[in-house]
Simulated assay, not measured.
Amino acid sequence: MAKTLGPVKRKFSPWTDSSAKPFIRFENITKRYGDFTAVDNLTLDIYEREFFSLLGPSGCGKTTLMRMLAGFEEPTEGRIFLQGKDLSGTPPYKRPTNMMFQSYALFPHMTVEKNIAFGLQQDGLSKADIAARVEEMLKLVKLDSFARRKPAQLSGGQRQRVALARSLAKRPKVLLLDEPLGALDRKLREETQFELMDIQHTLGLTFLIVTHDQEEAMTVSDRIAVMDKGEVVQVATPAEIYEAPNSRYVAEFIGDINLMECSVVGNRAGDPPVVTLECDGLTVAVEQECAASVGDRVAFAVRPEKVRMSIDPPADSSVNAVHGEVWDIGYLGDFSVFLVRLEDGRIIRAAQANVARLVDRPITFGDMVWLSWPLDAGLVLMR
């Protein structure tokens, strides 16, 4: 079986099919507010039934992009297409989209079932159709027994599910989720992420979520668009974003990583190709095809969990191996993070899974240790 980057979430990848047409297309979209450019000449395709995430720091343009799709903002330049139809000039209430806000925006004086029914009543559905749809939504979000309660009588997670049911009741073609889980505690947020995935797969809808939470985006998404300063920096699956970031920015933004500035001293083609780097006295070899030339300045990146730590030196300590002192330790339950200080003062992080409750020779503060990693563990970044 061919090697792949990380586990395959599901057998669904229309973006790899050159004949597949995008369900949503942002085409050369720019949005300006006076002298400030929130979104800068952005083009992005999203496919039907995708769970797609816009991920980035505050102010990167992700919410603005979603609001333009919903019709709450108009692009300064460019066009947005949904199923091939240009949405220019189409008001929000005529777009086949619905948005779920972080605040949930439930009516406090209405019961759960009346909150869910509100939008359907506005659309003029019959009482029988509304009752059937509300019952369907209550079962979907597992709130059958809470139908007659009011929002104040619900937990945060239950209110979140009422808001989700209300958003889905009108059967939009696209559900827009703006930081939908930000108000939940960590454990409930993790549980709800999987519930969202199950609901999205069950209904076969297209979900577009805006978040600054990396773990959330990595958990729920089929693909992620990492944004910075109004631009999309990389679009890929969660595993590709994590294992093969295309830049220093993406590598540092997603997860924890060790980054070193280096010079290319060798670039050997072959099977496998190997790039050799000189990183301020440390020789690093990377199994990777790379367009860099000898003498170019690049970055070497390696994730802490890919770094092996031992008291004894590795079999070959001439490459991809460093010696240093354990400077600090973070115990996180399922794994521990070790900060190892090299002789030149650099800090390298190593992560170890805590697979056993008892350890014969635990590595602790002040220990001198060796860090090493295989050829295919690291990555050369040219930008």
Rank of each mutant, 00 (worst) to 15 (best):
T219V: 10
I363C: 01
N246M: 09
R357P: 01
L164G: 01
F12W: 13
T206I: 15
L205V: 13
V233Y: 02
A291E: 10
S145W: 08
Q153N: 03
A356N: 03
T364K: 14
I347L: 14
A169L: 12
C290W: 05
W15G: 03
A2E: 15
P313M: 09
P57T: 08
Q102S: 03
E195M: 11
G124C: 13
T283E: 09
F107N: 06
W15M: 09
C60L: 04
V326F: 13
G345F: 13
G230L: 03
P304H: 08
D376N: 10
V294T: 08
V302I: 15
K173A: 09
T43Q: 01
L54C: 07
G266S: 07
G204W: 11
L332N: 04
E287H: 07
T276I: 15
V220R: 05
R159D: 02
L42F: 10
L188K: 07
L381G: 05
A152V: 10
T16V: 12
A315P: 02
G6D: 05
P7S: 10
E240R: 15
H212D: 05
R268N: 06
V340C: 02
P91L: 02
F23K: 09
E289L: 10
E289W: 06
D376Q: 11
V380S: 08
M260A: 06
V380E: 12
V284Y: 09
L42R: 04
K11R: 15
L342G: 03
I254W: 07
G333W: 04
L277W: 12
E73K: 08
Y33C: 01
A239I: 14
G333M: 05
R10Q: 12
M368S: 15
M99C: 02
D213F: 10
G71Q: 03
L125P: 04
A251W: 14
M260T: 07
R49P: 00
V319N: 02
S155W: 13
L176H: 01
D367K: 15
P14R: 15
Q158W: 12
D213W: 07
D178N: 04
G119V: 07
A165S: 05
K127H: 11
I24L: 04
L358W: 15
G324L: 08
S58Q: 03
M197G: 02
V39Y: 09
K187H: 06
V265K: 11
I209T: 00
L168Q: 04
L332M: 11
V250L: 11
T211M: 05
L120R: 13
E289Y: 12
